[in-house]
Design a protein around this nucleic acid. Structure first.
Lengths: 228, 228
DNA sequence: ATTTAAATTCATCGCTTGTTGAATTGTCAA
DNA sequence: TTGACAATTCAACAAGCGATGAATTTAAAT
């Protein structure tokens, strides 16, 4: 019997073919998911092409070589996350004016956008959080990509923390920020580790539980070290 | 002119050849370093063989397939670290008896072996800490390897924390432990991130600075969430 | 002395890798 | 209606992948 008409057509698709468009986005989404799960070297362009329902060569056509694709994937939501964190901080500052905003509110502005993203129905954010943990903890990617896309935000948040914790040493502030960064990336990476560790009592995907406890935890840490 | 006598001999080496022995260890050490830096898929057996000064086939001869090698590398120092943490906790408990040991002392027992290892002249521990961060933050390896090699220790430390923070909820304890785990793995991963972030004010390899601040930070967090 | 086992190198297997050039088809402006 | 350009598939490239069986040399056991 003849195999079904595969209908794989070469050349530019008709613009009426709706699912033939947004292919760039489909590539980015699949890349985000796969990179988050397997890391840079754990993903082959063919696996990725297959997951995105796209020919291998198209990846290079849109995004250039693999490294550039990785950077593009990482940058995409970094931009969004930065904006959301920034506006959250600014509105907290306005609400507190003329007083300086409290440590809790600053940390809330830092974490809330992640929690909202995770609870949203855009599955991509879950993947991005895992990717963030991968990059943040890598000695190869971390100092490059994190610094490139997040350093400006760090400056702003450290400024706010310095104002909220008057007289504190800058080294203390940066170290505490680093602890927060580590706790944040592991927690929102959603690895399933805490599920096993607690034998099902806590669930990795219960971001509300993670978020609610994390704010007092981190805030108390900052206070203890920076104004103790 | 004739090339210099390469002298690559086949067959079992003379036992007098000192540098020909301990080849298994050399493979493990090189694997530890490379896996920590590039992750599981970022390391090829040929690169590894080259770094260890060994033939490719020897890796399989000693450690079986690649996955098994990875597990062996991870397990090696997990065993040591577990023992050191455990004895540190037990001697803290003896020193505090008949009182229960404080939160600070428990966290100290958890972190101190890492700090000591990092400051030691065994370079391998630095690599292992980075590997730990990689595994801990990976959704693929984390729930498997961390649970396999560290869950027993978690139980013991959570027990101690429960005693130090009477009346606290177990979910609170596990979440706080998770935050500690995240802060620990990023901090000791030594990625160089904080150097860039703080523009040289803090240094990734200043483990003493990281350790000294981390204990009050984490302890205050536990207290706030679990007995607040 | 012989035999058995351990430790090593080498050559090779069948597949997979990232990347690219050429061919094909469609759009859109001149 | 033609010509430039955008979007896509296909086929192929050289290089590299993990794994392994065979050959070789030495050590240890009998």
């Amino acid at each position: 019997m003849p195999s079904p008409p595969k209908q794989v057509k070469v050349g530019r698709p008709r613009s009426s073919d709706k699912d033939k468009s947004e292919r760039g986005e489909r590539i980015l989404n699949a890349a985000e998911e796969l990179f988050a799960l397997h890391g840079y070297d754990g993903v082959t362009l063919r696996t990725l092409a297959n997951a995105a329902g796209v020919d291998v060569a198209l990846i290079n056509y849109y995004f250039g070589p693999k490294q550039q694709l990785f950077d593009t994937v990482f940058k995409r939501r970094a931009k969004i996350l930065n904006e959301q964190r920034l506006t959250a901080l600014q509105s907290a500052q306005q609400a507190a004016a003329p007083e300086v905003v409290s440590v809790e509110k600053i940390i809330e502005a830092f974490l809330r956008p992640l929690e909202v993203a995770q609870e949203s129905d855009d599955e991509g954010w879950k993947n991005y959080c895992a990717l963030l943990a991968y990059v943040n903890n890598s000695a190869v990617w971390g100092p490059v990509l994190m610094s490139k896309h997040y350093n400006d935000l760090v400056d702003i948040f450290v400024d706010a923390l310095r104002a909220a914790l008057p007289g504190s040493d800058d080294a203390d502030l940066y170290w505490c920020y680093h602890y927060m960064s580590g706790a944040m990336s592991l927690t929102f990476a959603n690895t399933g580790r805490i599920d096993k560790m607690s034998r099902g009592l806590c669930r990795s995907d219960d971001f509300r539980a993670a978020y609610d406890r994390m704010i007092p935890f981190i805030a108390a840490g900052f206070r203890e070290v920076c104004e103790g």
